[in-house]
Write a protein that binds this DNA or RNA. Sequence first.
DNA 1: CCGCTTTAGTTGAACAGTCAACTAGCGCGG
DNA 2: CCGCGCTAGTTGACTGTTCAACTAAAGCGG
Lengths: 164, 164
Amino acid sequence: MGDMSGEEVRWLTAEEQVSWRAYLRGNRELDIALDRDLQAAGISLSEYELLSMLSEAPRGQLRMSALAELIVQSRSRVTHTAARLERRGWVVRTPAPDDGRGVLLRLTDRGRAAIETFAVIHVGSVRRHLVDVLTPEQFAALGAAMQAVRDSYAADPAMPDPAC
Amino acid sequence: MGDMSGEEVRWLTAEEQVSWRAYLRGNRELDIALDRDLQAAGISLSEYELLSMLSEAPRGQLRMSALAELIVQSRSRVTHTAARLERRGWVVRTPAPDDGRGVLLRLTDRGRAAIETFAVIHVGSVRRHLVDVLTPEQFAALGAAMQAVRDSYAADPAMPDPAC
DNA sequence: CCGCTTTAGTTGAACAGTCAACTAGCGCGG
DNA sequence: CCGCGCTAGTTGACTGTTCAACTAAAGCGG
């Protein structure tokens, strides 16, 4: 992996440090702000993301594993989160018709109503804390950069083999 | 809440959606990758950040509250994290000389040795997953955008008054 | 069609993070 | 110099996340 043996460490330059710190802290601040706004309405950001993916899916339903991949959460976490949302009556679990192991998570009518309310709050929050504080060019550049990160992550799913 | 009265909701445009999603997911993937690399070495990213701030501070020491603000974590969280690091022998708590309520957290020699090891791993991780997958321009733009987010957050510490 | 490995998902215990309540020292107004 | 509110930090209970172990079905090779 990386630099195996006696490689020199390539420290960040002063400018890189500045960008990196801005990313790290800004990121945290943004997460806090977005979560705070949704929490005030009674849902967490990660729960919202799950519901949101369901609401966009063909019949308001998705396989647990598909969901996990979409929102970048562990299977276990999705199981727990889904259980919480199920208790609230926003989703239901049904066995997948084609695969005996699979589970389809489906948005209920109440779930759909709920997420429509949350979406209004959330979009306002995203605008206020992110979109509207950047120029359109800045925002586009941010998106492009993060997409590049995603692409490289996808190319390297779970770290190269130690044997490399 | 959100839009006070009969305001229209300003949904994200298709392009904005794409950027926003890339940010949200990419961000999560990056956090996972960075944390995974540090965890393999035996420390979490947030613990690392705390030690890192201490290592850069004048006498390797900082007030709890200063630390909390620097790494954007709640006071409570810093207390818990510091307790964990103290158990590992990497930091010590001492009463602040000038303020009877205050606590100074100081890096021990073992703590400094530890963080030097972690730093090598971490910088490699940051390069591999972020810096090196972007052009210098992209990375600078990312930093600038997130700095703008920070600035707006700082201007608006805990949400505008409902009276606005 | 019988093992074997892989994939889907769940479970419960351990751990980290949040929240609200609390202690204690500071600092100000009178 | 006393009372009151504010700031610093801690605590413990609760909630959410992670991790490793588990069940069960699918797929694959012989």
